[in-house]
Design a binder for these strands. Structure first.
Lengths: 343, 343
DNA sequence: GATTAGCAGTCAATCCGATCGAGTGCCAGC
DNA sequence: GCTGGCACTCGATCGGATTGACTGCTAATC
């Protein structure tokens, strides 16, 4: 059974180990923190912690190192979230404040977060099925090609070109205007997720000669909606992996692969439940199935009044500064909510 | 002075070393390639090669390793470009053939190239100053906000929102249509690089009440042009760096940093002159100033009939398969030219 | 019962020396 | 110009000894 003091011991072991990457011994603990007891007593506490699987000794006679379970305990019960310094708040404000479009906001955000944490930072591009169509635009590129532009709520614009089938009547400006008007009437204000059936209904209302063209256009719009449904991540700070290389006893290869694969990380994001503090933590072997058994991921959500827009997060070795990083993720997520929420 | 055979020796040293990462000795050369002479003779040739700085011995008594200069000689005079296998050509065709929009083409291209070479692949997003304005669209988002969409030649769409200043007259649909028409009349068909002066001229022609709005809009268009002017890279295969880690005796950190910094690589791209084979190679210390002293970069250009659109390239350790990678870069660059050229 | 001091034991890390072997440089002879 | 042969160099590898940082345990103490 682990005593009250035992938990304090665990806390300092995590802190010291994170700070120095050295296994920490009983003597160094009393030297540095006192505790008003002798090293032997600390050793007894450590034996209890080890019994419970919270710490482990790399070899028979060396200091102790937190296990994944130990980090979990630390994160859930021991860590006090160190609030951002005013300087850091300021940095976030000014750095993100002057952004222009969505891409720009996301890029700056992810850079900011990776600098704040010295880890790999991830920001999920807002998911669109929840957003609404704002405008559809058709632009003739040539007699046989058409550019379809889809503009949504969140300020997102997506474009794609269509070949107009030969057998179709050639496109004059008038026909185009008609088509454009019809599309906008039907679609504007609708949720993206609602569009596919609306499009098929629309086909019935146009003169047969125009159908082939319409069909191509609606196909493309459907494809746009569909493509956007699969989320994307914006990532920054991969170089930090090389800096923390020592903390990946295996290799950073699987981590780099996960970053390129995005899919894995997105799944992880979607599966993580946010705890009371608004940030969720997945530690070490908890991710083993994804090849990330030596990594931890922190995730926070950002949302508009309408609902969750996406996640922001941080990826790094299990030996990371959880207190600071949780605070950073939370601060950035909040700021992003404010920025994108009151649109 | 290096003899004819000496150059052959250099070639096999490069080949063997690239294949095995082992310094190659005189005996292993005669064992594997014969040459009709004894090991001692090869040693004499090697002494000459070393004299010329083309190879070096890591320690007094070990085999030889190519120097940067040796690789340079190999690339310029010794390497025969191994043509792509039919299977590889096929792969490029099918993989890139079914792409939709520009982003998609670039993403697929860069993935393809990194798989083909097992290195980090880079594709430069086409530079826009050479492309022309196809259409400008203004979409009202709210009484005080406007979305400005700029569509260009290469199928690129760029969007940004503007706050309409309070003191300005509120925007009705008519005023908007007028503004839209004016902008399109002036800009459509023009090179992006020509737009800024045209925009300032335009201001004089609108009624004063509309000027503040116009000003905001033109500011934004100018900013869009400007942002696009700074090139971007699409990158894939960073995980391959971890695989070739052994070949970066220092660390892969500076390389990862360069990848994130893009700027450095873009400068490099722009400075590299393409040789007769259409691919340019920068080796090892030739890049030392950029922190890439242990890396080599291959670059090829892709172009439309109108001119160069951008570069594609590969980044990896100096110890790489130059023959194969040059062929891959060339093939991909050509294919990209074909795909984007006949737009 | 919790704490402590003290002691024996363990094991990674480090150093040292011996040995091995791949590969060179050089020279004398063809 | 080529070759065979020999001495030499030096990294890599191994075993053994030493060191030092820890722990675990026990017996004494508060």
């Amino acid at each position: 059974m682990v005593s009250e003091r035992g938990l304090e011991v665990l806390r300092v072991i995590v802190q010291d180990y994170v700070a120095s990457r050295e296994p920490v011994g009983s003597k160094s603990i009393v030297d540095r923190y006192g505790f008003g007891v002798s090293a032997a007593t600390i050793r007894n506490d450590m034996a209890a912690l080890e019994e419970d699987g919270l710490i482990a000794a790399p070899h028979t006679s060396s200091g102790r190192v937190p296990t994944d379970k130990g980090y979990r305990m630390f994160v859930d019960h021991l860590a006090e979230i160190r609030p951002m310094t005013p300087a850091q708040r300021q940095a976030i404000q000014t750095f993100l404040g002057e952004s222009a479009d969505l891409d720009d906001v996301l890029t700056r955000t992810v850079r900011m977060l990776s600098q704040l944490t010295n880890q790999v930072a991830l920001v999920q591009v807002p998911v669109l099925p929840r957003s609404r169509v704002r405008h559809v635009e058709l632009v003739p590129l040539s007699p046989t090609r058409l550019l379809v532009v889809l503009i949504t709520d969140a300020g997102h614009v997506d474009q794609r070109t269509v070949e107009v089938p030969h057998e179709a009547a050639p496109l004059d400006e008038e026909a185009l205007a008609d088509l454009r008007a019809r599309l906008n009437t039907v679609l504007v204000g609708r949720l993206l997720s609602e569009t596919p059936p609306l499009l098929t209904d629309l086909a019935a209302t146009v003169p047969p000669a125009r159908r082939p063209v319409l069909e191509r256009v609606t196909d493309v719009i459907a494809a746009q909606v569909d493509d956007r449904r699969q989320d994307r991540l914006v990532i920054s700070g991969a170089a930090n992996l090389a800096r923390t290389e020592k903390d990946f006893p295996g290799s950073i290869l699987p981590v780099l692969e996960a970053i390129e694969e995005q899919v894995v990380l997105l799944r992880l994001f979607s599966e993580m439940e946010l705890d009371s503090r608004g940030v969720s933590v997945s530690i070490g072997r908890e991710n083993a199935s994804l090849g990330l058994g030596e990594a931890s991921i922190l995730a926070g959500g950002y949302r508009s009044p309408a609902g969750t827009l996406g996640h922001v997060g941080v990826l790094g070795p299990t030996r990371m500064d959880y207190s600071g990083n949780i605070a950073a993720v939370r601060a950035v997520a909040r700021y992003l909510s404010k920025l994108l929420g009151d649109d």
